[in-house]
Design a binder for these strands. Sequence first.
DNA 1: ACCTGAACACCGTTCAAGT
DNA 2: ACCTGAACACCGTTCAAGT
Lengths: 207, 207
Amino acid sequence: MPAPQRVTAASLAAAARTIAESSGIDAVTISAVAAVVGVRPPSLYKHVGHRHDVLRLIADDAARELGDDVTALVGTSSDPRIVLAGIAHAVRAFSARSPRAAGLLFSAPSPEAGPTSEGMAPLIGSLLDAVRRTAPGDPLPAARTLTAWVYGFCTMEQAGAFQLGGDVDEAFEFGLNTLVDALTRVGLPGRASIAARSTESGSEYPQ
Amino acid sequence: MPAPQRVTAASLAAAARTIAESSGIDAVTISAVAAVVGVRPPSLYKHVGHRHDVLRLIADDAARELGDDVTALVGTSSDPRIVLAGIAHAVRAFSARSPRAAGLLFSAPSPEAGPTSEGMAPLIGSLLDAVRRTAPGDPLPAARTLTAWVYGFCTMEQAGAFQLGGDVDEAFEFGLNTLVDALTRVGLPGRASIAARSTESGSEYPQ
DNA sequence: ACCTGAACACCGTTCAAGT
DNA sequence: ACCTGAACACCGTTCAAGT
């Protein structure tokens, strides 16, 4: 009779994520995770090939969880701009409650530690969906603009980068309103003017 | 006669940054840095207290370099919007040429590995300056919005997060124009409407 | 099939000893 | 004043051996 399975992918992910949130990504060692799931370090290599696979389990778990949150919001209001705002708030809430997992989600220390593209698919799909209903034209640049801002804001906030005082909540609302508002205006006069002028003045990447 | 100084802060920073860019942050070990500066590992502890101080040297060096780039751009054009666009391009160019140092700049793995606030001061000062000349009202939320977007975009780009195809350069220009344009419109009708409506509908952080 | 102890090559860090 | 070898407690990872 073979030994009963003591370690599952789900228990591994849960253990790793708990350690990550309470003690940081560096504390997610093979030894620490093994101890939490009640097994000796070498046994983990029956389930993962390398330590970064453990981090990837966290990232994919986070992608699934946030993907669920975001998907649940799509179609929640008849005004797509409210949906978009709700999504941004959901991302920020997730980042506040699971900052380490959130960090792994968009900027893992190495590509191998980041989420699978299959893991990210539902999240990205729902996001593109919401953007498509809000902004005219190609949703991809618009979605990238919104995603980059939300991700950047939350990461900087969690990293403690906003040191100059002021109300950080207010800055989030300001940025959100500015962006959502601008994205619905695409195509109106005034846009694309800077690109044209700065291209005139020389190279594309001034430094 | 005491032994001549073989290690300076500048040589340490340069060695660490070279290793970081060529082999990743994880490769910036005390041993590796010591080998590059031509000394045994324990000797480094005469100059830094911990490994994260070495990472901080990289972060502060990056802050200084990007700060110089950005400061040189302020006042470069009579149109402040062009200055802002130039700054965004400078950040992206820096992130492309020094992705690991750039990562340390805004989202270090731990606060101790991040830049000093003194190191960040010139960069942040110039950025606020440029925003103040462009956007009406409080420059802080506007600067945070722009910074979060640029940082998020560059980090995601370097992490290979833009996997859905499309032109990433175009997405950058799109986001930049959208944001700079929106920031100069602050106060016009249409803004702040979402916040008001989404506050109506319940909690501030829906999830 | 899964788990284990022992072993290997590496870390970061400390410290007494050298010049 | 700076550098060093030796040492410590830790990693990640491999592998032959157990059940």
